[in-house]
Design a protein around this nucleic acid. Structure first.
Lengths: 209, 209
DNA sequence: TTAATTCAAACAAACGTTTAATTAAATTTT
DNA sequence: AAAATTTAATTAAACGTTTGTTTGAATTAA
C-alpha cells in the first residue's frame, strides 16, 4: 500500500497522539489540529479513525522483514554474532519508532479480535520465524544448546526492551539520571539495553539451565 | 482507605472492563451494567470515572509491601533463595491480578502526569527499594557480584512477565499450545516463567558480564 | 426524623462521521 | 494554447450518538 504525502502527514500526527494519549484518548479533531488539516480529511482519506490506526499498523509493520533476512544471510559470522546483530537491530528499530511501539505496547494488551490483532500476530509470527531459523542454525552448528523456548526468549527481548522504553520516564527517575540530557539518556538506554540483552541471550543460548 | 462492599463491587467491574477495553474504551454505563448498579452511583461513590481508576490503583497498590518485607526477613536462607522467592511472589501477584496488571501495563506507557503516574512511580519505588536491599545483602555476603544495574534487572523481570501475561493470547498461538485448556495453560506459563526468570537472575547476579 | 442510598431523567459537551458547497487540479475538447 | 469539462481535494456546518456528570424526587436505613 502506498500513501501520499498528505496521508503520511495525517498518519504521523495520529501516531504521535495515539502514543501520547492512547487511541480512545485522541479525538479526530486533535489529529486534524496536529496535522493542520480539516476534520473531514481523516474520513475522506482513511474512511474512519479505526482504519487510520490500521493504516499506521500496516505501514509500520511492513519494513521489518527485509533487514532481518539480510542478517541471516551474512557469511563468515557465528550464529551468536548474528544474534547480537539482531538484538542491536531490534533496539534500533524500537528506539527509532518509539511512538509506534508505544501504540503497539498498548494495543497488544487488549483482548480484542480484529484487524489490528491480526496484524500484530502477523508481525510476531514473522519475527519468530526469522529468529527460529537463526537459532536452529546455531543448534545445528553445535553453537547453541538444545531445547530453547524461542517464544519465551522473544518475550525476554521484547518485554525488557518494551518495558524500558515505554516506561523510561520511570527508569530515568529510579536510576537517578534526571540530570542527563534527553539525547544522552537515549544513548545510555540504547547501550545498557544492548549490553544486557546480549549477555542474557548468550547465557540462554549457550549455558545449560 | 477502606471501601464498602458496594464500592468494591463497582471497582471490580470497572477493573475487568478497563483491562479488557481500556479506560477510555469503557463507559460509565458499561461499568454500571456490569456491576448491576445505577449509573449515578459511580459519581456518587467515587466522584468521577477518573477517580474510580485512581481508587483501583491505590487499592491494588496497597497490599504489595507486606509480603516482600517478610521474605527479606527470612532466616537461614541464602540471598539467591530469597530472590527466587521474590520471583515466585511476583509471578503469583501478577497472575492473580491479571486484570489490574493489564491496566497497569497500559497506563505506564502513557506520558501523562497526574495521580496515576505518581501512584505507579510509588509502586515502582517501593519495589525497587526492597529488591535493592536484598541485592545489597547478597553483595555484602559475597554471594552476588558488584555493579548490578538493579532497575535494569527489574525491567527484565517486569517486562518479561508483563509481556508474557498481557499478550499471552499471542504466546499461546505461537507456541502451538492452543489445544491446552486455559487452566493448564496458565499453570504452564507460571512454571515456564518462573524457571526462566530464576535462571536469568542467577546468571545476572552471580556471573560476570 | 434525619441521613444515606437509589433511581429515572436530563444536561451540556464531545464524539466520529456525513453532507453539500466550494476551490484546486487534472483531463479532454475545441 | 485556451476553454470547457471532469475529477479530486478542501471546507464549514450540521448530523445523530454517546459521553461523563448532575439533578431532584423516591426509597431505604439509621
Amino acid at each position: 500500500m502506498e500513501y501520499s504525502d498528505k496521508q503520511l502527514q495525517i498518519m504521523e500526527a495520529a501516531e504521535f497522539l495515539f502514543a501520547e494519549n492512547g487511541f480512545h484518548g485522541t479525538s479526530v479533531r486533535d489529529i486534524a489540529d496536529k496535522a493542520n488539516i480539516n476534520l473531514a480529511m481523516v474520513s475522506y482519506y482513511f474512511g474512519s479513525k479505526e482504519k487510520l490506526l490500521e493504516a499506521i499498523f500496516s505501514y509500520r509493520g511492513e519494513s521489518i522483514k527485509l533487514k532481518l533476512e539480510s542478517i541471516l544471510q551474512q557469511q563468515g559470522m557465528s550464529s551468536l554474532e548474528k544474534v547480537y546483530l539482531l538484538v542491536d537491530h531490534y533496539i534500533d528499530k524500537i528506539m527509532n519508532r518509539q511512538h509506534f511501539h508505544r501504540i503497539l505496547a498498548r494495543e497488544q494488551v487488549l483482548n480484542n479480535s480484529g484487524p489490528i490483532t491480526d496484524l500484530i500476530l502477523d508481525m510476531k509470527r514473522r519475527n519468530l520465524e526469522i529468529i527460529s531459523r537463526l537459532i536452529h542454525e546455531g543448534q545445528e552448528k553445535g553453537e547453541f544448546r538444545k531445547g530453547i523456548d524461542i517464544p519465551m526468549m522473544m518475550s525476554v527481548m521484547v518485554g525488557t526492551a518494551s518495558n524500558l522504553i515505554t516506561s523510561k520516564q520511570y527508569y530515568k527517575v529510579l536510576s537517578n539520571l534526571e540530570a542527563l540530557p534527553e539525547e544522552q539518556f537515549q544513548q545510555y538506554i540504547r547501550d545498557t539495553l544492548s549490553k544486557h540483552l546480549k549477555f542474557l541471550f548468550k547465557t540462554i543460548l549457550t549455558h545449560e539451565v
